[in-house]
């Protein structure tokens, strides 16, 4: 060959002192380019922590502090008040009705969007997001306008003795409206990412449509579905605006927990108001813990990802 390889350099392996042989004037001041300097970092972190304390943690603690201001007996008395109990029952009932319905709808919508092509698909996706961009109060008003006594369907409903507005059906409808996107939004990107490959495999192995859905499609999205249901439930129990408009706020009958809190607070019944509020806070904390647990344990199954 014309250009023989140069012989391997007979260099001794560089010892620990070798690094010091090079001048390292800037060594102390060097930091990775994507990292801020220590003072900058301290200021940023302190700012974030302060913000969290003021905006999130302090109010949360004060909820419990106010609720227990008259001691435990006062707290228990406030929660066992018939009106409070009625509000709790109603809230649970609304959640039990609206969350499964929304889960079903979200699953069906995500399935249709991810697995099929149909005209108007992008419009459909946009409409699912509508509740995110509409003020809940407007949503409530729309239901009053449609289903109320003077609404479009009012005469028909009255003729058949059906009460929608200022009753349970209206509250459930309004709650469903504001929580529609939660499940669908979790499932659509995941199911789109997963595509139809698994379903085709199941079908080619002889599975029927139902078998494919129960044994393949649903298990593939179960954690994302649970995640969406969790968020949906938290919002359903905490919804104020839309429900306030359609419920009519009949004490002991159509007051949900958030509405009850507001009424008690306006009556300067602080302990009772915060006692009920503390239940909502506990719900929020439980949701947060479960959500974190899901994200930690099944993070990869929640998010769209390649292959297996």
């Amino acid at each position: 060959m014309d250009h023989p390889m140069p012989p391997a350099p007979a260099s001794p392996t560089p010892g620990p002192s070798a690094a010091r042989a090079f001048p390292s004037r800037r060594r102390g001041r060097w930091h990775p380019p994507t990292t801020e300097t220590a003072p900058t970092r301290a200021v940023l972190i302190a700012g974030a922590v302060l913000f969290l304390l003021l905006v999130l943690l302090a109010p949360l603690i004060s909820v419990f502090a106010e609720a227990l201001a008259d001691g435990l007996p006062g707290y228990v008395a406030a929660l066992t008040d018939p009106e409070a109990l009625s509000a709790i029952r109603l809230t649970l009932l609304v959640a039990v009705l609206s969350v499964p319905l929304n889960a079903l709808f979200g699953l069906a919508a995500a399935w249709a969007i991810a697995k099929f092509e149909f005209p108007g698909k992008s419009l459909f996706i946009t409409v699912i997001d509508l509740p995110f961009s509409i003020s809940p109060v407007i949503a409530g008003l729309v239901y009053v306008l449609v289903y109320g006594a003077h609404g479009v369907l009012g005469p028909f409903l009255q003729a058949h003795d059906l009460q929608v507005v200022f009753a349970l059906p209206g509250i459930v409808l309004a709650t469903m409206f504001v929580t529609v996107p939660f499940v669908a939004r979790e499932l659509i990107p995941l199911m789109q990412e997963q595509g139809t490959g698994d379903e085709e495999a199941a079908l080619s192995l002889g599975a029927s449509g139902w078998q494919t859905f129960w044994r393949v499609t649903l298990p593939n999205v179960k954690w994302a579905l649970l995640y969406g249901v969790l968020l949906c439930n938290a919002r359903a129990m905490g919804e104020f605006g839309a429900v306030a408009v359609v419920s009519g706020r009949i004490r002991g009958f159509t007051n949900t927990m958030p509405l009850q809190v507001e009424i008690l607070y306006n009556e300067y019944n602080t302990v009772a108001a915060f006692a009920v509020a503390s239940l909502l806070a506990v719900l929020a904390l439980a949701t947060l813990v479960l959500k974190t647990l899901l994200e930690w344990r099944y993070g990869d199954a929640l998010m769209a990802r390649r292959g297996h």
Partner: peptide, 30 residues
């Protein structure tokens, strides 16, 4: 379903929530 074809997909399309054994037995289980 009724053509009785064994189809091996380009990206395998294994059922990720099933064990290897359940994957293989799927066609018999349904």
């Amino acid at each position: 379903q009724e053509r009785n074809v064994g189809f091996v997909f380009q990206h395998y399309a294994l059922f990720r929530h099933m064990t290897v054994e359940d994957n293989i037995a799927f066609g018999l289980a349904v």
